[in-house]
Amino acid sequence: MSTKIETRDLSVSFGDVQAIKSISMKILANRATAVIGPSGCGKSTFIKSLNRMNELTLNSQTTGEVLLDGENIYGNNYDVVTLRKKVGMIFQKPNPFPKSVYDNVAYGPRVHGIHKKEALDRIVQENLKKAALWDEVSDRLHPSAMGLSGGQQQRLCIARTLAVEPEVILMDEPCSALDPIATAKIEGLMRTLSTEYSVVVVTHNMQQAARVSDYTAFLYLGELIEYGSTKDIFENPKNELTEKYLIGKFG
């Protein structure tokens, strides 16, 4: 069981506000890791620091290290474009581009230089299948993606991310805008994808974390309170705060 991502003393602040403080943890390869905690605890900021999307916000300051396969992604020589190819992200609100389903999935490969129709066709089909969406859209690849339901759009975003062949998939509360049926489908995907990729999921739904993940990290007010296997965390939390959160004393 190797470490895919290791954070060392990772801290992020926006202007005067410190969002996360000194988080050190090891995310294992080919497993699903959940990040839970009450609103405002910094889960989103944490996950966005794993693919440097925090840098898109003004005034963001990041200190500490994030090592992907041993290399610090915040190092001077690390190319951010390569990083984001390796570490993909699914957003809270599905954000398909107003293009066709086909063009959405083909966007990444095209941007990375693949233009041959046969190659793109194959990539589109393969990844829509991996995202459990192929059966529903195989006959409507060319109409706009905006016509899909919320759950379908989110699976499209997953297919789109898979098409650039990432190694890590970050998911920032991917089901919070979806109905229970769509949520169940995506939770199923989280499990199947974690065998091939390293999946990190931020969720405010504890039960989802328990269902889906192998490891869980509990964040509170920007700090890492406890981290361990999901079984251990949920059945035997070592920290009082963790226990309080899990039994619902605060949300």
Binding site: D79, V81, T82, P109, H112, G113, I114, V164, E165
Partner: peptide, 14 residues
């Protein structure tokens, strides 16, 4: 997609 990636990145960055 992996070959020549480093070279491509340098060109892209320029």
């Amino acid at each position: 997609m992996e070959e020549n990636w480093a070279k491509k990145i340098r060109g892209l960055n320029l």
